[in-house]
Amino acid sequence: MEILISIIIGVLFTVGTYMLLMRSLLRVVIGTMFLSHGAHLLLLTMAGLQRGGPPLLGFDAEAYADPLPQAMVLTAIVISFGVTSLILVLAYRTYKVHKTDDLNQLRGSKDE
């Protein structure tokens, strides 16, 4: 299972990197999303995929899964939610002001 998920993480990172290197603003934003998904999945996988019950009071199980990586992933997801929405707004404003979403044209001139 770990190997399968590792491959998925690899794919996510590849796609993310590819998107990050593209010229369109929106694709770059989507690239960062893929990368952060990959990182979150990696965090969960690296902590070991366990078969225990959920570490909640209502559940009785023989063994419980390690709650720490889950808590961390949740925090990381919340943060990336906030950051992603901020980047989306920023990309949108940049597009509105500059009337282009091509990063090549957003390079700026030398003498600023």
Binding site: G82, S85, L86, L88, V89, Y92, K96
Partner: peptide, 13 residues
């Protein structure tokens, strides 16, 4: 508050 602000800022625009 944050979710509504972000979504509606873009929407209002």
């Amino acid at each position: 508050g944050a979710a509504l602000t972000i979504i509606l800022t873009i929407a209002e625009d």
